[in-house]
């Protein structure tokens, strides 16, 4: 104990007169979230569940993509890749209803004012799902390409979705988010020519910012490209133990 003021610190005295001390901390601000995310990850590992964090701007088609994945999955006639969804929005449970209507187990998280999901919200929501019956859990994050990038939820993969109406330079504008993705999905390709979407430039921009990402071009509306994405995810489920989370 320090003899001057009774505090616990005896080293690192900055100013003996005012008796200021320096305390080294070096602790992550989000260490609490990271710890809970790790707990989620362990739970998902026990359940042999592939978990995807799905991120995009509002209106890019996250919910529509999941709906179409469910439709295509049943068309494929495969019984594997049973889907469950945790969906985050500031308000309303419209999206969860949409998904439940398609026969998907879906839990809504309403965040109030929070612009992103956090690991504790996901932990709570998973209690409402029968994880045993699922192969693939999609966490549909709040529509936002900024804040959710910093929050690990315990997922295996991050999918960043952009639609052709958003412009080819979206990856250049939101590099942090795109750099954290293992998969980038370009949606609404059925209307690409109508909005004069420059495909080559968009793909080149994704590759420049996120060279690690697998790219899929799909239409949630027509179903184009969805089978390839599903097949890729089924493959990832098989090799789940070897997937390295990119962030954190």
């Amino acid at each position: 104990m320090c003899k001057d003021c009774g505090c616990n610190i005896i080293d690192n005295v900055v100013d003996p007169k005012t008796h200021q001390h320096k305390i080294e901390i070096e602790r992550g601000i989000l260490s609490k979230n990271d710890r809970l995310a790790e707990q989620n990850r362990n739970l998902f590992k026990e359940q042999e569940l592939l978990v995807v964090n799905l991120l995009s701007s509002p209106g890019s088609g996250k919910t529509a993509l999941i709906e179409r994945m469910q439709v295509e999955r049943s068309l494929l006639g495969t019984n594997n890749l049973n889907l469950g969804v945790i969906v985050g929005d500031l308000a309303t449970d419209n999206d969860a209803h949409r998904l439940q209507h398609r026969g998907i187990s879906a839990v809504q998280i309403t965040t109030g004012n929070a612009c992103h999901l956090e690991a504790n919200m996901v932990a709570k929501a998973t209690q409402q799902l029968d994880l045993n019956s699922l192969d693939l859990l999609i966490i549909e994050n709040v529509g936002n390409l900024v804040c959710p990038a910093a929050y690990d939820l315990g997922e295996d993969l991050r999918i960043v979705l952009l639609s052709v109406t958003e412009g080819e330079d979206k990856p250049l504008k939101y590099p942090t988010m795109f750099k954290s993705a293992q998969i980038v999905v370009v949606n609404k390709i059925d209307i690409a020519s109508a909005v004069e979407f420059d495909r080559e430039r968009a793909i080149a921009n994704i590759q420049k910012i996120a060279p690690q990402a697998q790219i899929f071009e799909v239409s949630a509306k027509t179903g184009q490209g969805i089978k390839l994405l599903l097949a890729y995810l089924a493959e990832q489920l098989k090799i789940k133990p070897s997937i390295q989370p990119l962030h954190g």
Binding site: E26, A150, P211, Q212
Partner: peptide, 29 residues
């Protein structure tokens, strides 16, 4: 765009730059 200045390869392996830390405090009694 994380391009190596020597060979031009685009890299996705990030060593530093993601920190969000409380490094230290100065306190008094």
């Amino acid at each position: 765009i994380y391009q190596c200045p020597r060979c031009g390869t685009t890299s996705s392996k990030i060593i530093a730059g993601k920190e969000l830390e409380l490094a230290s405090l100065v306190v008094s009694s």
